[in-house]
Every structure is written in C-alpha cells, then in structure tokens.
C-alpha cells in the first residue's frame, strides 16, 4: 500500500519544514509514504523550505485558495494511484501522531473517508472557533444532509474509492464543507476520529475567521443554485 500525505500551503515558510519533517517515515501496513506540498502561489520561501525538508512540491503559479490546492492534491493522488491520501494542514495545528489513527479505519474497516474531529479530543478551543464550527456544521447538514462534529477539519484521510470519485468545485475555504457533499453524492462510508488540534496565534491567524463566514455561506449557496 502506498500513502500520500498532502499539504496545501500558502506563505508558510515559518513552519512548513518543521511540519514536513515531523511527519511519520514509517506506518504500519504501508510500504511507501510520500509527502506532497502544493504551494498555492506563495510569495515567500515556502517551496524552497518544503523541498529542503524532503517533500515533493507542486507549484500553483497563482493563488487559488484552499480548495484549489486540495483539488491539485486529489488529482495528483488519483493520477499516481495512491491507496490512501491524508490531507494535513501546513500551519502546524495537527499532530503527526494522529495519522496512524486516521488511516486505521481505512485499512482495517474499509472506510472510504475519515475525518479528524477536534471536538472529541482537544480541550482548549477558542470561543470564536467553537462558534464558526457549530455554524458550519449546521450549514453543512442543511445543505448536504450529513451530520458531522467537525465540518471544517483539515485533517482527513481518503481511501481509493474516495480518491477516485471525489470531485471538488470550490476554490476557497468552503471546500471543507464540500467534502461532505461529495461523501453524500458518492455514497461514501465515513467515520470521525478524535484528533488533537493545537491552537497557536499563528494557526489562528491562518485559519478561518467569523468575518469570512458569510462569504463561505454565499459561495456554498451559489454552488447549489447554479
């Protein structure tokens, strides 16, 4: 089995090499582990740092947003026929120790998608994040009929069927909710696994903000209505 750990990155020179180096070199039941950083038009040294840390790097010549970068990761995984794809944030908020837990349901139980949920493991979550996530979960349920405890999670794992069938359309942050539409549309099995999320000033500045929420909702609605 071969696995791809995909990291969408935009201006992440401060932490990208640390994040890439922290990823596991060996995983139970996995022969090949590849790390792919998709640089989404960064203007800093993200590419250089990621390459130095040993990752494969694909470069977007223009910034297209989180959705754009995730689409490229998925296309690469599909093209290179990986058995498992894990998406991992570049801002250092995820723990590499959670990766074995994320892929286990795919290998053992044959799940198609595994979502890392911070609500089952993390203790100190900032209030603004609680509000954003609860709202996003409700919207995800109303739009895509799937209940999740963490619709905005960046730590996800996909099996071969999911890699093959998921077709993303959104370019921006609304892509996180779009994964659930694809789970619903393709009738994929999914499971949530508790994961730890570290909130730092850096990761909070990089993530979603409440002011961004109306924009995300608007884009999701437009996608539905078009």
């Amino acid at each position: 089995m071969k696995i791809l750990i995909g990291i969408p990155a935009y201006n992440e020179e401060k932490l990208i090499s640390q994040v890439v180096r922290s990823l596991p070199k060996k995983l139970k039941g996995i022969e090949d582990i590849d790390i792919l950083v998709v640089d989404d038009g960064s203007t800093d040294k993200t590419i250089q740092k990621a390459k130095e840390a040993g990752a494969k790097v694909l470069r977007h010549i223009l910034n297209r947003g989180l959705g754009g970068a995730l689409k490229t990761i998925l296309s690469y995984a599909k093209k290179k026929q990986y058995d498992i794809l894990v998406t991992f944030d570049a801002d250092g908020q995820h723990s590499p120790l959670d990766i074995p837990k994320m892929i286990e349901p795919i290998i053992k139980d044959g799940e198609d998608v595994v979502i890392g949920s911070r609500w089952k493991a993390s203790k100190h979550i900032p209030f603004s994040r609680v509000v954003i996530n609860k709202l996003a979960n409700i919207i995800t349920f109303l739009l895509f009929s799937i209940w999740t405890t963490d619709s905005q999670s960046g730590l996800r794992a996909f099996g071969k069927k999911a890699i093959k069938n998921i077709e993303l359309q959104s370019d921006g942050m609304e892509v996180s909710s779009e994964f659930f539409r694809e789970i619903y549309r393709n009738k994929l099995n999914f499971q949530e696994v508790p994961v730890v999320v570290k909130y730092t000033y850096y990761s909070r500045a990089k993530g979603q903000s409440l002011t961004n929420a109306p924009n995300i909702l608007f884009h999701l609605l437009i996608r539905l209505l078009r």
Binding site: L58, H60, R64, K71, T72, S75, K79, Q169, D171, I222
Partner: peptide, 26 residues
C-alpha cells in the same frame, strides 16, 4: 445571477489551468 455564475465559471477554469500547469511541472 447569470453574471455571478459566469465569473465563478471563469475562476473555476483558471484554477483548472493552474492545476494542470502544476501537475505538468512534475
């Protein structure tokens, strides 16, 4: 509404182009 969809489609096409270029690089 039509105009918005049109712009969205163009953004979508640009992303696809950027993606193809990125994958071609490798």
């Amino acid at each position: 509404f039509r105009l918005y969809i049109f712009i969205e489609d163009i953004r979508h096409d640009i992303t696809e182009l950027i993606q193809k270029l990125a994958l071609r690089d490798i």
